[in-house]
Computed example of a mutant assay.
Amino acid sequence: MKKIFSILILILFFSCNKQENHAYGFYYWKTKLSLKESEKDVLKQSTLTNLYVRFFDADKVDGKFQPVSVISKSENFRSSKHIVPVIFITNRIFLYIKDSEIDFLAKSIYSLIDKRIKEFGFADASEIQIDCDWTAGTKNDYFKFLKKLKALSHKEITSTLRLHQVKDKVTMGIPPVKKVYLMCYSTSSPLENSDKNSILDIQILKNYLSEVQNYPIKKIDVALPIYSWGIVTNHFGKHKLINALSEKDLNNEDLEKISENEAVVRKDGFFFGYYLNKGFRIKVEQIPEQTLDEAVNFLDRKIPKFNIIYYQLDERFIRNRNFNR
Rank of each mutant, 00 (worst) to 15 (best):
G121H: 07
Q129M: 14
G230H: 02
S198Q: 06
V166K: 00
K178Q: 15
G230Y: 09
G173K: 02
I113M: 02
V180S: 12
Y181A: 02
P190G: 13
G237V: 10
N251R: 08
L241M: 10
I199A: 04
N214T: 10
M172F: 13
K107R: 05
S198K: 01
D141H: 10
D254E: 10
T233Q: 15
N193S: 14
L224K: 13
Q213V: 04
N140M: 04
L245N: 08
S198H: 14
G121N: 12
G173H: 03
L209H: 04
L163D: 10
G237T: 12
K240C: 12
Y208H: 14
L182I: 04
A125E: 09
E119Q: 12
I204H: 04
L209A: 02
G230Q: 03
N207K: 07
K218G: 10
Y181C: 00
G173E: 09
I202W: 14
S246P: 00
D141A: 03
L182F: 03
F122R: 06
K144N: 11
Q129L: 13
Y181S: 07
I220K: 09
N193A: 15
I199K: 07
D131H: 02
Y215K: 13
E156Q: 14
R162E: 01
A136N: 06
N234V: 09
Y142G: 00
Y215P: 01
I109M: 03
S210C: 00
V180C: 12
L163Q: 14
K107S: 13
N243R: 10
K115V: 12
D131G: 04
Y181M: 06
S210P: 00
K240L: 14
P190R: 02
L245W: 04
K107Y: 08
V232F: 07
N214H: 12
Y185S: 01
L149E: 01
D133Q: 10
C184T: 14
D114Y: 07
H239R: 13
S159E: 05
